[in-house]
Write a protein that binds this DNA or RNA. Structure first.
Lengths: 194, 194
DNA sequence: AAATTATATTAACTTAGTTTAACATTTACT
DNA sequence: AGTAAATGTTAAACTAAGTTAATATAATTT
């Protein structure tokens, strides 16, 4: 089935019958994007809640001064969307851009509501997905409040070693909430320290 | 019914039958706490997901240096728990303390699982509650990345005017991620500015 | 009302992180 | 291979925010 990667991921949370799997498969779209394209741009309506099959995205906010702040990266097995925009079908606050050629399983708003109706287990599944996302976001708040930039960088390296290899350093800096120059300084300090 | 405030809140999201309301009422506990008591302490298992009927709580994280960082306040109509601890029934990262005498509607882990089974609409309801919490948390991440301390303070004043009146200023400072001294400085600058 | 205790202010000094700008290195393009 | 574009480094000057410590004010307790 085209949604096998998703089914494999879902099996950790809920067990679906063959009919339910087939129904899900019939409703869901596989989409491919090139590096540089956008899934959502600030002001758009976010049409899809997406499961990343392969590739990488960044979610960012551009402030009044035109500065970009990276909220999260998504790689294989992660979900991505502008949740507020998707749920309310209202203009997005965030940009979601592909940092690599990316393959997604995309679920539109209409489809997800239909799925909740026809396969109630999916309501449970998505509740659990959002719970995990919320917990991760709260932990990020805590790290930004309690850790220095250096420690946040070390944590990032440790927790997401795959991501650091795949994206330019200035984006890591933006994610950490510091300038690229300061991240450079931190890295050279870390090298001297050893 | 003892859970009327909660039912009123829920009616914005789902509509329950009288039987469902009665079932919910039978399963749910009303609890009262005094100012200063704890709902959860770091290391405890968070037993309840709670709806605040009246009063106020703070959720905080104490780091290795013993410094407290306030993650959120909850007042009337808000939910509070250590979500990670509650879901996995694992030791809590956070403290949740009452800043006023507080009345809660408390739902234990067993009960919530039972409710999901017997009243599937509640799975939908709680999905929506968590979605909102996630969106709020992501916005907090964005503000901490993109705004100066002064602007974060002005935003806080505007968005939560009720809360600022009810809690000491050093807790506002902790929530904003700055020292109490620096918040004092910001406030006196704001007074001079006008 | 006096005395504690908790909260808030002020100021001098220090530090973490930013800004600017010049230069170096890597990656992508013809 | 050679050039342009994108990314990364370094350093000096600057600023936002933290630290310390002394003092002031407000809220509780006796």
């Amino acid at each position: 089935m085209k949604i096998d990667p998703l089914l494999n991921y879902m099996s950790k949370y809920v067990s679906l019958t063959e009919e339910e799997k087939a129904y899900l498969d019939s409703k869901i779209v596989l989409r491919k994007y090139l590096k540089g394209q956008y899934l959502v741009q600030q002001g758009d309506i976010c049409k899809y809640e997406c499961y990343v099959v392969s590739g990488c995205t960044k979610t960012s906010y551009v402030d009044d001064l035109g500065q970009e702040h990276i909220i999260m990266f998504s790689i294989e097995d992660w979900w991505t969307s502008d949740m507020a925009s998707f749920i309310n079908q209202s203009p997005a606050d965030f940009n979601i851009q592909f940092l690599e050629n990316t393959e997604l399983i995309a679920i539109s708003h209409d489809v997800i509501e239909d799925l909740y109706k026809h396969v109630p287990k999916l309501e449970r599944f998505f509740r659990q997905v959002v719970e995990k996302a919320f917990i991760a976001s709260q932990k990020r708040v805590v790290r930004n409040l309690s850790m220095t930039a250096k420690d946040r960088y070390l944590f990032f390296k440790e927790q997401y070693p795959e991501i650091e290899q795949r994206i330019p350093q200035y984006m890591v800096a933006s994610y950490l909430g510091i300038t690229k120059e300061f991240l450079s300084k931190i890295k050279s300090q870390l090298i001297m320290d050893q």
